[in-house]
Design a protein around this nucleic acid. Structure first.
Length: 173
DNA sequence: CGCGTTACGGTTGAT
DNA sequence: GGATCAACCGTAACG
């Protein structure tokens, strides 16, 4: 992790050429949310936020159809790095969902070694946890999908409200 | 040319 | 209520 220690790590960009043109370039797109950006492929994305669920779904669906990642990337206008990541995650966990963003750890109280040793989980507990975590690595994303959509809708509403609020507060002309 | 990897700037949400 | 912090996000670029 001491990447910055001695000299430039090979992956370091010599020139921060990647900085997003904050103002000047017409990179910002007109979206109700006002945070849309366009990548090099011409696709829209929101910096720091997961791709929309339907895009993710499309990625895995196309991959399932045997379409190559590079084609998916171009078709959906999503960076190949992202396609790779999502596909990789899908193969690993069987879920198309992004990881949970934000939040602090459940704050596991500083357990002393003895306590940890004494805290032997029962097999049923473990399997329950595993099931909960991996939700059965079969073809399951359908069920999740519904929930996701519902949640997405809610979030959308909430976000829109927030956005309007912000606009009203900001514009207030 | 395709794709795995990773620095970067960003957002989120629990503490 | 705000500040802090660690997690994840997607893009862009390297290899």
């Amino acid at each position: 992790m001491t990447a910055l220690a001695g000299g430039i790590p090979r992956m370091m960009r010599p020139n921060p050429h990647q900085n997003y043109p904050r103002g000047g370039y017409s990179l910002e797109v007109s979206t109700p949310l006002g945070q849309g950006r366009v990548n090099q492929l011409g696709g829209m994305f929101i910096n720091g936020r997961p791709l929309p669920n339907h895009i993710r779904h499309k990625i895995v669906e196309m991959a399932h159809h045997g379409i190559r990642p590079c084609v998916i990337s171009r078709q959906l206008r999503v960076s190949h790095g992202c396609v790779s990541k999502i596909l990789c995650r899908y193969q690993e966990t069987g879920s198309i969902r992004p990881g949970s963003i934000g939040g602090s750890k459940p704050k596991v109280r500083a357990l002393e070694p003895d306590c940890i040793a004494a805290m032997s989980l029962s097999m049923s507990s473990i399997s329950r946890i595993m099931r909960c975590k991996f939700g059965g690595v079969g073809g399951e994303d359908e069920e999740d999908d519904d929930e996701i959509q519902k949640r997405e809708l809610e979030e959308n509403e909430r976000r829109a409200k927030h956005s309007i609020d912000g606009i009203l507060g900001d514009r207030c002309e």
